[in-house]
């Protein structure tokens, strides 16, 4: 455990120095610029759009980081052979993989936290610009804490994407890993369609196959509750918790696979 922690801290340190966190500045600037423009255009009628945009931005920036560092970290370490000296220290290969993952999770956590704080700060500021007569037309207050549920699930989705990226990068090139991760993510978004595939096709084989994929592939669509929270529709905690548990089980399986592959690997 201690070793995993030390490796994780090193990952975090390196990603900070590698200017990964600069994306946060981009995030804040983008969000401020867009909400300012929208405010001008709609005169405060549509806080929903700004919320929707903000949540989408948190998710997208997070995904970029998750994919790029998720793939880059292990690959870079192997490619540049810094792993040679690291693995000669008293650590086991699974500790290396888990340490890398924990470091990435830490980097993502800090990112999401900072973006969330910036997001709420901007919303709070916008709130001061509009009179009560406009505010009462909004489905939820500007700084509705209910949005935190959506952000929580975004974070778990990011952890899942990272695990997928890390899994692929333990045995394939960065380009292939990125393509596979992206492919899985896209399919995972249409997962619900796979479930009801038998309604569309005649062939039972195709339907079984689609069913199989539905159960095997990660259901990324489940993590997206943006629309519900923006319209202040109820999202039960039970849903949030089961979805998180689903994500964690999936992550555990991916990490187990990554460890199994990585432990048998020859380094060139």
């Amino acid at each position: 455990m201690r070793l995993i922690g030390q490796i994780a801290v090193n990952v975090f340190k390196e990603s900070v120095r590698d200017k990964v966190l600069y994306n946060l500045v981009a995030f804040a600037v983008l969000l401020i610029a867009v909400s300012y423009l929208l405010g001008q255009l709609t005169a405060g009628q549509d806080m929903k759009i700004i919320k929707d945009l903000g949540l989408a931005a948190i998710a997208s920036f997070g995904r970029l980081i998750a994919v790029f560092i998720g793939i880059g970290l292990v690959w870079k370490e192997v490619e540049r052979r810094s792993i040679y000296s690291l693995l000669s220290k008293p650590i086991r290969r699974h500790e290396f993989v888990l340490g890398k993952y924990a470091g990435l999770a830490l980097t993502l956590l800090v990112n999401v936290l900072v973006m969330t704080v910036a997001f709420y700060a901007i919303l709070a500021y916008l709130n001061t610009l509009y009179p009560e007569s406009i505010q009462v037309t909004w489905p939820a207050p500007a700084t509705d804490p209910g949005m935190l549920r959506a952000i929580l699930l975004i974070f778990v989705e990011l952890l899942l994407i990272t695990a997928v990226a890390l899994f692929f990068s333990t045995f394939s090139s960065p380009f292939l890993s990125a393509a596979l991760t992206l492919g899985l993510w896209v399919i995972g978004h249409f997962n619900d369609d796979l479930r009801s595939f038998e309604a569309v096709v005649e062939s039972p084989v195709a339907a079984y196959f689609a069913r199989g994929l539905y159960y095997v592939l990660p259901n990324f669509g489940a993590f997206d509750i943006k629309t519900q929270v923006v319209y202040a529709l109820p999202v039960p905690w039970l849903y949030v918790v089961t979805t998180m548990a689903y994500g964690c089980v999936y992550i555990a399986m991916l990490l187990t696979g990554a460890v199994a592959i990585f432990s048998r690997r020859d380094f060139k």
Partner: peptide, 17 residues
């Protein structure tokens, strides 16, 4: 591993440390 040490050929470490 606790009792040994290893210098790889053309060693390379972390850019930002």
């Amino acid at each position: 591993k606790r009792r040994t040490g290893y210098l790889p050929e053309n060693p390379y470490f972390y850019d930002y440390l």
